[in-house]
Each structure stands twice: as structure tokens, then as C-alpha cells.
Design a protein around this nucleic acid. Structure first.
Lengths: 246, 246
DNA sequence: TGAGCTAAACCAGCATGGTGATTGGAGCGG
DNA sequence: CCGCTCCAATCACCATGCTGGTTTAGCTCA
């Protein structure tokens, strides 16, 4: 039995360039660890750091980096002491959701998809706003409404749509559902980062379109303020039927 | 000017136990880096590894771990070469979404919230299924439907609801919208991990309730198969008005 | 038997020093 | 002026060895 010699030079560890590209060693090791953890029962002991480090074939520092990554992903748990080591963690669905979103390809987030999702979630947020909006929340909404009105008067489409998003964000802020809030706000960001200006649906002239959008949102905030649920729901549906931003 | 001495012993680096708890040094350093990156313009050079390592007051290994973390979060970018170093990155909304979900408190995912979200997304998935379902997809759906029927015949509520979820997952699989798919499937997982059995709405006896749920889903798959959009939409709305699982 | 101590096996940091790749500027010859 | 080579800065790994905390198996002893 020969102890394998230390990998002092790069050639000793750098595997053939084919298909290795772009993935650094810590990430490779992290993948191995994640695979190990996924294959094991939750709570199972995977081994000591040293054992697994050797198994991954990396140095201490690199292994610590890999470990930190999988730990951040909530896939493994490290425990000290005599019976310590690495343990597979039961992955909560929420963590899986986070990771699956992170794993999503960058261009997987088409704006059209995001808009569609946002439209589906809008009614929920309006519902929540109806139920939970405090006076201060409504005040914040009206402030954004003012910005929209100013932008509409200036015919500044860019400012208008930004104020519009801000209003929707204010509405979302009211929801007690953290998941919904977080997701909706991110959708808004996705849309915002790809959208340049307002654009009416069909042939309606822009000033009239902006004005009608403003009126609709003002009515929505009024309905929320008045706790007029049917009206608010109707308005948000109209909102999503007539909007078109690109 | 005195060069500060090496921190050879633990007392040299371990700051007073108050308020430090639970956050390891690599995470602390990662926070510092993230703050730096957030304060800077996207693309700005934050400094060399060595400079920032000293700024964070940690050792090389620890700093590398911190670096790997913020890199995984996509907030910084490390570049080699003479003009290399750390650079602030423009964080994509999708990455922010992923991180915000990961940051969500574990108990933030109440089942009720998840159910509400799922119900809001169901119509979108049915729409997508109507548009994109291939014959093989429908076959898969019918297989789950069979499992539901068997479970219904056995009056096995557990098996029934699992088959039901599997059917919904099949429907979701058809959607070309990766974000929607991913999110919906995770919601299903959240619900699944907290739900024990079917429970009818109101006083309807269980066998009849299960039968009616089966009929509804069977009709839905038929409508998808027949590309009968109005009917499918109507069914999914009925689905979400009458369901109650806990 | 049971309470208490010891020591082994872990992990978390630290420091130092080395090889090799990547990058861009500086200098030089044609 | 252009292209070439060379070099300094910087990163990505590697190896080794140290201090000190935590956990528990196992032993001792009343």
C-alpha cells in the first residue's frame, strides 16, 4: 500500500481540460458532497471532514470552501466533537425552492413569463391589501399615485411606469404572506430590468392610455381604502386585461 | 507604524462573545464583502483579494470561504491577472429571488399561504397544458388518474391525495415557463410535507367527496386532451373553490 | 451503581510557503 | 508605428503545522 504523493504541482490535480472548464474545484467538490448528501438518508453521517476531503481529492482550503457552499445551501450539517463530522440534512421545501430558482438559467426568466405570473398574483395581493392595509399603507400608496399623476401630466412614460411599479410594490408590502411578497417583488424587478417604456394596447393614443391607467390605479387604491372588495377585484382584473408594457 | 502581529492564538481573533453568536467568521466576512459590493456601482473594482482580506481581518483560508459564498450569491466577480481583483456585480433579479427565498424564515411558509399561491397558479398551468400538452403528457396524466381511481375505490385518502398531487405535477411539467414550473412544484412540496390526509369541505361524507374530486380531475384531463379551453378553465376554478385538504 | 474526570477524535480558525495560469503594461526591434 | 517578447501583479490551487474549542466514550473511585 503506497500513500499517494502530495499534489505539489498543478499538473498533479488539474484533470484534462475537456469538459472541466468553467467549474472550479471547490464547486466540483461541493457537487460531490451534495450528491452524497442527496443519496443518503436525512441525518445520516457522511464521514469526517478529512475522509470526505480525501474522497473529493482536494486540499483542506478547497474543501472548506466546498463545505461552506453546501452548508449555505443547507444540504449538510457539520458537527464538532468526537462523534462529529458531516451529516446529511433534511432539505426543507423552501430551501429546495430557493436552490431551484438559483439553478434556473438566466434567460429562463422571460419577461412575458414574469408578466403572466405577476398578473396571476396581483389579485391575491389586492385581497391581502383589502384585509390588512393600515392607513399608513394607503398613504404610501397615494404618494406613489401622486408621482404617477405628475408623470402623466408631464407625459413622461418612463417616470410613469416606474411610479406604477412602486405603487404595486407598496401594495405587495402589505401582504402578510412572505413568500408571495418576495416572489412578487422579484417578478417586478425582472420586469423592471427589461422594460423601457409604456406602450398602449392597440391603437389608443399614449396620453389617453396613461390617463386611463392612472384613473384605474387611483380607483383601485380608493377601493382598497374603502375596503370595497368586489370593486377592487373587478379593477385588478380590468388592470390585467388592458395593460401592456414593454 | 507597527505591523500588527500575527493572530496565532484564538483569543487574538475571537471577538467578545456578545452578539457574535451563531455567525461564523467566513459568514461575517461574506457580509462585509456583500455590503461593500452593494455600496459600489456594478462593475466597480473593490480591491485585490489581499487588500480586502486585510480589511476583513481574516486569514487567507477564511477569506476564500467568504469569497466563495458571495461569489455563489453572484454579488462579486473575481478576475485574475494584473488588473484583477474583486469587482461588484450587477445582481440579476432571478438570483435575488433565489436568495430572498433562501433567506425566508423556515416557518414563513405556512401551508395556507402555499395553498393560496398554488390555487392562483393552477389556471396558468392548465392554460399551458392546453396549449402544449403532447399525447405522451396526457398519457402520463391518465396514469396518475388511474392511481387516483384505485385509491378512491380503496377509500385510501392518503394514496388518493398523493396521486392527486402527482397529477398536478404532471400538468405542471408541461408548462414551458421554467419559473412557474419550479415555483409551483415547490409549493406542492411544501403542501405535501405538511398535509396528512384529505378532508372534505363542510359536511359532505368522505367517499362522495373523494369521488367528486376524482370526477373533477378526470374531466379536467379530458378537457386538456380535447383542447377545450373554456371547460378546462371552468373546471380548474371549480377545483379551487371546492377543495379543502389539510 | 453512579458521579465525575480524562483523553481521544473531531472541528474552526490561524500562518507560511510553493507551483502554475492569466492578464496587461513596458520595452524593444523591424 | 506595429508586433513581439518579457515581466510584474494577481488569482487558484497545493502542502504543512499550530492553537484552541466541543463532544463523548470510557475509566476511576466513592
Amino acid at each position: 500500500m503506497v500513500a499517494d504523493p502530495p499534489a505539489l504541482r498543478r499538473a498533479d490535480w488539474e484533470l484534462p481540460a475537456t469538459a472541466t472548464a468553467a467549474l472550479r474545484r471547490p464547486e466540483q467538490a461541493a457537487e460531490q458532497l451534495a450528491a452524497l448528501a442527496a443519496a443518503a438518508e436525512p441525518g445520516a453521517r457522511l464521514g469526517t471532514k478529512e475522509e470526505l476531503r480525501v474522497h473529493c481529492g482536494v486540499s483542506v482550503g478547497t474543501f472548506n470552501e466546498a463545505l461552506r457552499l453546501v452548508q449555505a445551501r443547507g444540504v449538510v450539517d457539520v458537527r464538532p466533537g468526537r462523534t462529529g463530522g458531516l451529516f446529511a440534512t433534511r432539505q426543507s421545501p423552501l430551501v429546495r425552492l430557493g436552490n431551484s430558482v438559483l439553478a434556473l438559467d438566466k434567460d429562463a426568466a422571460s419577461v412575458a413569463d414574469a408578466v403572466r405570473l405577476r398578473d396571476a398574483l396581483d389579485p391575491l395581493l389586492v385581497e391581502d391589501a383589502l384585509r390588512h392595509a393600515a392607513p399608513s399603507d394607503v398613504t404610501a400608496m397615494r404618494a406613489e399615485l401622486d408621482r404617477m399623476r405628475t408623470a402623466a401630466a408631464d407625459l413622461d412614460g418612463i417616470a410613469f411606469i416606474h411610479a406604477n411599479w412602486a405603487l404595486h410594490a407598496r401594495i405587495a408590502d402589505v401582504s402578510p404572506n412572505a413568500m408571495l411578497r418576495s416572489f412578487y417583488l422579484s417578478l417586478l424587478e425582472i420586469i423592471e430590468s427589461h422594460t423601457l417604456a409604456v406602450q398602449p394596447l392597440g391603437d389608443e393614443p399614449l396620453p389617453e392610455y396613461i390617463q386611463s391607467r392612472y384613473d384605474l390605479h387611483a380607483a383601485l387604491v380608493d377601493a382598497i381604502d374603502a375596503r370595497d372588495e368586489p370593486r377592487a377585484i373587478a379593477l385588478i382584473h380590468e388592470h390585467n386585461m388592458t395593460a401592456h408594457t414593454s
